[in-house]
C-alpha cells in the first residue's frame, strides 16, 4: 500500500514537506510504547502513535519504519519534524483515534506487523527478491 493510499483511507494529511507519497508500506502497527516498536516491528512497517517527541523518529529510524502517523489530530513539535526531515522519514497526521485509524487501515487488508509473515527479516541472498508482500 502506498502512502498516498494510506492518506486517503485515514483521511489524513501529510506533515512533512515534499512527501514522497509513492513509498510503500507492507504492514502496520499501533503503539505508544517505543520499546514495543523496537521489539515487535519489522522493516517496512507503518507506525501509528500518539507520542510526538523526537524519540519516535529515532525509534522509527532504528526499526526501519517507513512512515509515522500521528493519531487524534496531534501535531508533532518542530524538533520532531526537523529530525524526521533529516532522517527522511515521512510524517502523516490522522484526525481519528488510534483505534479508528488502525481499524480503517486493517479493514482494507493492511496486515498487522505481528501477523505478517516475514520476508524482510529473514532475508537471505536469494529469497529476498522472490517474496511478494501481501497486497
Amino acid at each position: 500500500m502506498t502512502l498516498a493510499e494510506v492518506l486517503s483511507i485515514i483521511e489524513g494529511k501529510p506533515i512533512s514537506a515534499d512527501l514522497d507519497l509513492s513509498r510503500k508500506v507492507s504492514m502496520a502497527c499501533g503503539a505508544d510504547l517505543m520499546s514495543d516498536v523496537l521489539a515487535f516491528t519489522h522493516a517496512g512497517t507503518l507506525l501509528m502513535t500518539g507520542l510526538t517527541n523526537p524519540q519516535v523518529v529515532r525509534t522509527a529510524e532504528m526499526a526501519g519504519i517507513v512512515a509515522i502517523v500521528f493519531v487524534r489530530g496531534k501535531l508533532p513539535p518542530p524538533e520532531t519534524i526537523a529530525l524526521a526531515q533529516d532522517k527522511d522519514i515521512p510524517l502523516l497526521a490522522s484526525k481519528y483515534t488510534m483505534y479508528e485509524t488502525c481499524g480503517r487501515l486493517y479493514q482494507t487488508g493492511l496486515p498487522s506487523c505481528g501477523l505478517f509473515r516475514l520476508t524482510a527479516d529473514s532475508w537471505s541472498e536469494g529469497s529476498a527478491s522472490s517474496s511478494n508482500p501481501p497486497a
Binding site: S35, D36, N53, Q55
Partner: peptide, 15 residues
Amino acid sequence: EMGFGAGMGLNNIQT
C-alpha cells in the same frame, strides 16, 4: 511518558 522505560530494553538487546 516518552514511550520508554517499559522494562523491555535489556530484553530487546538480548533478542
